[in-house]
Amino acid sequence: MEKVEKFSGVAVPLKRSNVDTDQIIPAVYLKRITKTGFEDALFASWKQDPEFVLNQPIFANGEVLIAGPDFGTGSSREHAVWALKDWGFKAVFSAKFADIFRGNSGKQGFITGVITEDETKAFWDLIDANPGVAATVDLPNQTVSIGELTASFEIDPYTKWRLMEGLDDIGLTLRDEPAITSFEANRESWRPKTLPAKGV
């Protein structure tokens, strides 16, 4: 996982609350065999509407999503995070997140920052006044800024540390690599090995 510190990208207003993961990615897209390539699946139903925010060219390259409260509710599908990342988003800010979605995001190196509802609305107004404006996300200082407005966001210290270190679960386990290697060195010779293949 890439280390996350500070970045800027086009801010996208998603003026809806209770954005559930069925809306983020409908079930029909879960049959695929890859963990990537879900960008077309992101908000697939809503994208049928030409007025939908991501259909506006100025927001098509969005990287920072500013959404209404209760983002990511419903089904636990990890595909929701994959789809947001595949579209190009790096972070989403909301007044409230569903737990499972937030946990899945942390595993995938995707920032979910909590800001207040007032700050959300203030950011929406700023974007409306200047569509295509960039938001700057500063993870070490836990701030998100658009123009003159800066909001502090909440993220749990363990996830923040993992994102800044660029560690996914696998990355974390690999910190114990010496322990794994020494465990393997003592692995008894009778234990199973699939290779070289026998019985073929």
């Binding site: 595993k107 679960d169 696998i170 386990t173 690999l174 114990d176 794994i180 393997e184």
Partner: peptide, 12 residues
Amino acid sequence: TSEVEHVLATQT
């Protein structure tokens, strides 16, 4: 599936 990936990568 996430754990499958974890085991493939780390054998733990």
